[in-house]
């Protein structure tokens, strides 16, 4: 990442106040308490998806590096960890209606898997060790895959919980069908 002339993730330039409040209206078609839950969970869901992709991306770069060095932008890794911690806090703070218990439980489980992933990635860096072997890789990937399954299982397109922001995808210029 240092080869590029862009600001790294921990650069001060990003530390300005976010001026936009989330504009999430309660999703229609749900009971009020469920709708409130879904509205509250959306930023957490989005953030968890990004954290998963960040950790996966960092590990992908490590795996595909011939030198097996961890090309870690430390700010980026630390930021992912901070976001993950924040997600856990937000999850704990949410009021969970009965209908959403399983949904909430799966996202909490996703957090746990990602915490495991984060610890393992951190251990590569901490030790810069050659002993990060195939078993470590398998264990890390198992946690990542479990996190992904939770992420996909908790998608709820009706409430804008979607793994991909399709609104700007190539296909999104197609004529929407009744949406």
């Amino acid at each position: 990442m240092n080869k590029t002339n862009i600001h790294t993730a921990h650069c001060d330039v990003w530390e300005t106040q976010d001026s936009t409040e989330p504009l999430v209206a309660p999703p229609p078609g749900y009971a009020p308490d469920t709708a409130q839950y879904l509205t509250g969970i959306r930023p957490v869901y989005d953030s968890l998806g990004r954290v998963m992709a960040q950790l996966a991306g960092i590990f992908l770069l490590y795996l595909s590096s011939q030198q097996r060095e961890l090309p870690l932008d430390h700010g980026m890794f630390n930021l992912a960890q901070e976001q993950l911690d924040s997600c856990e806090e937000q999850l704990r703070a949410l009021r969970i209606p009965h209908q959403a218990r399983r949904h909430h439980g799966l996202l909490s489980e996703m957090c746990k898997h990602l915490q495991q992933v984060s610890k393992r990635i951190d251990s590569i860096e901490t030790h810069q060790r050659n002993i990060f072997d195939d078993t470590d890789t398998r264990l890390l990937m198992r946690q990542l895959n479990k996190a992904q399954r939770c992420f996909i299982a908790t998608s709820e397109p009706g409430a804008h919980l979607s793994p991909v922001d399709f609104s700007h995808a190539c296909c999104s210029c197609g004529v929407s069908k009744g949406v």
């Binding site: 862009i6 990003w14 930023p43 989005d46 992912a80 793994p163 922001d165």
Partner: peptide, 22 residues
């Protein structure tokens, strides 16, 4: 590399992540 970088940016820069499936 740059997708991973973009994923770490604040929400207001989410446009950079269009059409990417985590």
């Amino acid at each position: 590399e740059k997708w991973v970088w973009a994923l770490s940016l604040p929400d207001r820069l989410r446009w950079l992540l269009i059409a990417v499936d985590p």
